[in-house]
Design a protein around this nucleic acid. Structure first.
Length: 670
RNA sequence: GCCCCGAUAGCCCAAUGGCAGAGGCAGAGGACUUAAAAUCCUCCAAGUGUGGGUUCGACCCCCACUCGGGGCACCA
């Protein structure tokens, strides 16, 4: 996979300030840094300048975003929203500003080109090369360097803090606003990011909160160019970001936001001063890791030929023997010490060459593991086109929401052409003492003890019955002993049945037969819609009805009892295979119940003989009557109006309106 | 600050816009038993977080709010 991506220029190396986890002693992808902490070990992540391998996921940003339309309604909205936010597409414009004393203009990115006349200063990212260049040789250089050092020293966590006061340095230089020729002071600050857009912005304090905060801190002017009813931002401290009529904006005056953006973009483009542009929050996926475990990067570095992929007949490239290697995290890949493995010859020219010693992020492997499943016995290639065409995409994927922007985004990138998983269900977590069970927290249930005490069937049943699968389940609400009781109750039924296997069910008690077929029908529907807790409730109902039929009804010998108990065993086999297998044998059947198949539901047995209908007057229930299920609207309406209770209530009055919904309800409106 | 999800008996949870209760836990009473356990039977409770709206009719749809959970958060 790596080589295929490399061939297409989608796997490449670059120098960059990367996320570095001091705990794991390895680099991390943006997606693996959660609130400034390492996703694996919760250590605060720092920055380090390194040359690393990347996958060009940004080339696919638009497709990853736009193809989500296909997943609408089939994946949880939450996951789709998270992916949309993560990709973070924004539409705006690049605008060129001439810099005094510099030949090259500086390009800035803005989503609000309409507010160009409101710009009162320019800000460049303090850690960008541009900032260093602009500062050099100015009286501000010393101050700039001090500031840059202090920013570098601050961790990501500090940087993420919300109400952090704005800081920055005036670089003693000026940019010229292309639309009105104004001289704008240029500042360097850490509130502008070096790796987003062009790393430089025009500041419009009146209509951008961050710019306003900065302007107020540095005593810079604020100019309103979009009229609004709200208080002057320079007084209120709140930037006005809504729509309104343009003012103080030359030819744009009087236009609304959308029209002004169109007009200014057109004008900038005509004058060669800028053009509309798009930006993404998504960054390329950093895949190098300095760990032993992981897939080695199949590249040989040759003095002459450069990066040479390992030839196909030498794949898969396997790791060197770990024996003798120091696998402890130490900031350099442990593979580097395996000199026998590292030293090799160039596949192209045969000269001495070195293997790449980094391994890949494990998310690389999980991005396509499901492609291997249909071809698991194929020893010639990772997967075959024919198998994939037959079996994929995955119809139903079940996984935790924790992978919303990791595994689930990477997988979509790997298979982009199509979507890897048609439907997605995020199952909930098991909660104990208020938080998700985890080894790190130590709030665990000893599963072995639970299994010892209650049996695997009861534990599994408890989990499934505790609520809908997408909800979290609090362990204190789980009752394995209740499940044990229920399973015993069901199991006992199998010993009560006295009729022989193969008996004709048609001669059995009709009431129980109806209950059985309704349970089978409803449970199947519930299972297919992932409401396992409801399916179990249907089985419990049938167990109760069967118990009653045996104890105080037609008795254990009735064929309907066998039909019911067999149905119970089969339905339970989904979550309690051991118990149901025993039931199956006690019922006189050969193993295995798994091969028994779901009993065919007799539609005729699903129809009730009589149903209870409700008669309402003005939406209030006044009477209940028994009617055949086949009754028509007109018939039930006539029955209702003729009913003595209703006639008395009406007392001769003519209803304004009668709504009949046979066979359930009649509502008489007075 | 912005976005999303949720709120139904003491508890976990059901209910195509049409009788609020399917199921379980807990609780009460009873049968069986010398007794207890186990088993079996019966009973018990909320009017659906709050306030409006749409509708003949709202747990369900719409608006606002409260509380709880989650996500995003200097991305110009």
């Amino acid at each position: 996979m790596f080589i295929e991506l490399h061939k297409r220029g989608l796997a490449y190396r670059k120098d960059s300030a990367v996320n570095w986890c001091p705990g794991c002693q390895t680099v991390l992808a943006n997606e693996q840094v959660v609130a400034g902490l390492c996703e694996r070990c919760d250590t605060a992540v720092t920055k380090k300048k390194l040359n690393q391998w990347y996958f060009k996921i940004t080339d696919y940003a638009d497709r990853l975003l736009d193809d989500m339309k296909e997943l609408e309604g089939k994946w949880p909205d939450k996951v789709l929203t998270m992916q949309r936010n993560w990709i973070g597409r924004s539409q705006g414009a690049n605008v060129n500003f001439v810099i005094e004393g510099r030949t090259e203009p500086v390009t800035i990115y803005t989503t609000r080109p309409d507010t160009l006349y409101g710009a009162t200063f320019m800000v460049v990212a303090v850690d960008s090369e541009l900032a260093a260049e602009l500062a050099s040789g100015t009286p501000a250089e010393g101050e700039f360097k001090t500031y840059l050092e202090s920013v570098k020293a601050a961790s990501d966590i500090d940087r993420l803090a919300t109400d952090r006061p704005k800081s920055g340095v005036f670089l003693q230089r000026y940019a010229i606003n292309p639309v009105n020729g104004e001289k704008l002071p240029i500042w360097a600050s850490d509130y502008v990011l070096a790796d987003y857009g062009t790393g430089a912005i025009m500041a419009v304090p009146a209509h951008d909160q961050r710019d306003l905060d900065f302007a107020r801190a540095m005593k810079l002017p604020v100019r309103v160019v979009v009229q609004s009813d709200e208080e002057d931002p320079s007084v209120s401290g709140v930037a006005t970001t809504g729509d309104g009529k343009m003012i103080n904006s030359g030819s744009l005056d009087g236009l609304n936001k959308v029209d002004a953006i169109t007009a200014i973009n057109k004008q900038l483009e005509a004058d060669g001063l800028g053009k509309s542009a798009r930006n993404y929050r998504l960054r390329d996926w950093l895949v190098s890791r300095q760990r032993y475990w992981g897939t080695p990067i199949p590249i040989v570095h040759c003095q002459k030929c450069g990066e040479v992929p390992v030839p196909a007949d030498q794949l898969p490239l396997t790791l060197p023997d770990a024996k003798g290697l120091d696998l402890k995290p130490k900031g350099q890949s442990p593979l580097a010490a395996a000199t026998d493995w590292v030293n090799t010859s160039c596949p192209k020219c045969g000269a001495a060459a070195l293997r790449d010693t980094d391994t890949m992020d494990t998310f690389v492997d999980s991005s396509w593991y499901f492609l291997r499943y249909p071809s698991s016995t194929n020893h010639n290639e990772p997967f075959s086109r024919a198998d994939i065409d037959t079996w994929l995409p995955v119809d139903q994927y079940v996984g935790g929401v924790t992978h919303a922007i990791l595994h689930l985004l990477y997988s979509r990138f790997f298979t982009k052409v199509t979507e890897p998983c048609t439907r997605l269900l995020n199952q909930g977590m098991v909660v104990m003492d208020g938080s998700a069970m985890s080894k790190a927290r130590g709030n665990l249930v000893r599963l072995s003890d639970e299994l010892e005490n209650h049996g695997v069937d009861a534990i599994r049943l408890s989990m499934v019955f505790s609520g809908p699968p997408e909800d979290d389940v609090d362990w204190s609400d789980v009752s394995p002993s209740g499940s044990v009781k229920f399973l015993s109750r069901a199991w006992r039924l199998s010993g009560d049945v006295t009729s022989k296997p193969g008996v004709d069910f048609a001669t059995g008690d009709i009431a129980l037969r109806k209950a059985t077929h309704k349970a089978l029908h409803d449970a199947a529907f519930a299972v297919e819609s992932f409401r396992f807790n409801v399916a179990i409730a249907r089985v419990m109902e049938l167990v109760n009805a069967t118990r009653k039929t045996i104890d105080s009804g037609p008795g254990a010998a009735d064929p309907a009892v066998r039909e019911a108990v067999e149905a119970i065993a089969i339905m339970l086999s989904l979550v309690a295979p051991f118990t149901s297998e025993e039931m199956w044998e006690r019922l006189g059947h050969k193993p295995a119940i798994a091969t028994a198949g779901w009993p065919v539901v007799d539609e005729k047995l699903l129809v009730a003989d009589v149903v209870e209908a409700v008669i309402q007057i003005n939406g209030k229930i006044k009477e209940r009557i028994e009617v055949p299920p086949t009754i028509t609207d007109a018939e039930i309406e006539a029955l209702a109006l003729a009913h003595p209770t209703i006639a008395a209530e009406l007392n001769g009055a003519t209803p304004k309106k009668v709504i009949a919904r046979a066979p359930k309800i009649v509502n008489i409106v007075l």
